[in-house]
Write a protein that binds this DNA or RNA. Structure first.
Lengths: 246, 246
DNA sequence: AAATAATGTGTTTATTTTACACTAACTAAA
DNA sequence: TTTAGTTAGTGTAAAATAAACACATTATTT
């Protein structure tokens, strides 16, 4: 390393000390959370969006976000946003990625942390409709406000990968579901066709499905059996879990 | 949803508008980056640490971090920290997770974004030794300053998973390496024993190793062939890549 | 009663993964 | 120079896993 580089480095290392003693006087950035909320309805994977109210992105759709409050844990921010928008509080939620480009937001430096949430769309019936809050097919998501397209795409990829490692997808279904519904869900998320018999075999082999000894009703064909997911058993085996592999 | 809840929600939705127009007046948080820098030496996986200079955590070890500058992209912060500390700029670096608990830092609200970096330890010879910068065996990492233990553990788990999806590990080796070195590396990262023949078979089948027609020197036993990694070929096949699977 | 639509079920084949042992090449010590 | 020690290099058989695939059953609709 050249001498000048080394001096530069050491100067910067001094800067680092500031973090210990002078946080209060340090220049800060605005921090927000954006939630990518997935739902599943009519055999399609959906995402919840609102109209952007920024001037620059008027008429474009955007993710659900808000600033993180100074006295609020980061995860708590995400749960708060979900609660505000959907009324749901006991939901699946996970942090995905933080987006921190200087110019990502037109109003100034805002670093945003993206969270993914999976909710059962039936528990949530669009009671709050501000900003034209609506479900959109993930297939047709394009041209979102800010850098939300990028955030959305990252979360969607994350989801596709994640459902193959853990059976998260079940958070998108009602508590009682048929195997067809389950397969439709996976096909919608992964955007592929699966062999019905092998799919069943695989899920039964996992041994997380409980036969409820009930059947579907009001279907225009032979009704399928209903199952529920055994979360407890899953939590037990989770440690040694290594994926689903479709 | 109860009426009062709904009103509360709508009030909060108004708050959200602030983000668009009043970022400058919004209360902000200090944002930092912490780097978990892995190296590989003497068949052991290492991580780079410095002495904490905070009063509270005096004498404890900590990760390498600094505040994000107001005019600096988040990723750029991480590269800057690496450059300052190691002198290296062309390194593997990836964001892992953001830690945003209110009380994680004794000096105030500091949200930190953790990055993982993998460097070839031979390219970096501890030229800058401020704060007792040193390599530590990952085996013995305990009781770090702040919440750095948690951050470290998350990054280590991340690495163990990630090297099974992509051959990142090669960033830890010299550009010429033997298959034994490669296997030692994977064994150190994953902390398991691997079958030598199957390991070789698997790596050759991937078809990313180029036989350099050279041999090891100065080893007290039969020298092994040297290989390099074909990054170009890897980049080509990356899209359809689905993991290594040890 | 006939047409339609989805359920439920097993076997065979192909692919992938695992387990496993000997000879060759080189060094170091006797 | 012989011998002991260490790692390199190589293939096959068995086991486990994944993929492909068809038909009788149960319900609804017309």
């Amino acid at each position: 390393m050249a001498v000048s580089e080394k001096e530069h480095a050491q100067k910067n290392i001094k800067t680092f000390k500031v973090i210990q003693s002078e946080v209060e006087s340090i220049k800060r950035v605005a921090l927000s959370v954006d939630c990518v909320i997935f739902g599943f309805d009519e055999n399609k994977l959906k995402v919840l969006l609102i109209r952007s109210d920024s001037k620059k992105f008027k008429s474009k759709w955007s993710l659900l976000g808000d600033l993180v409050r100074p006295e609020e844990d980061l995860d708590a921010s995400a749960y708060r946003i979900l609660k505000q928008r959907t009324g749901l509080s006991d939901v699946y939620l996970e942090q995905v990625h933080t987006f921190g480009e200087v110019n990502r937001h037109p109003a100034g430096r805002v670093v945003t942390v993206a969270y993914c949430s999976l909710i059962n769309i039936e528990h949530y019936r669009l009671k709050i409709l501000d900003h034209e809050l609506h479900w959109h097919d993930v297939e047709n998501i394009k041209d979102l406000a800010f850098d939300h397209q990028k955030i959305f795409e990252r979360c969607y990829s994350w989801l596709q990968k994640r459902v193959q490692e853990h059976p998260l997808g079940l958070n998108l279904l009602p508590s009682k579901f048929s195997l067809r519904e389950l397969q439709n869900l996976y096909e919608a998320i992964l955007n592929i066709k699966l062999d019905r018999r092998n799919f069943r075999k695989k899920f039964f082999a996992m041994d997380f499905l409980v036969d409820l000894e009930e059947e579907e009703e009001d279907v225009p064909h032979r009704p399928g059996k209903l199952y529920k997911f055994d979360y407890e058993k899953y939590e037990m085996k989770k440690k040694t879990w290594s994926g689903i592999d479709f």
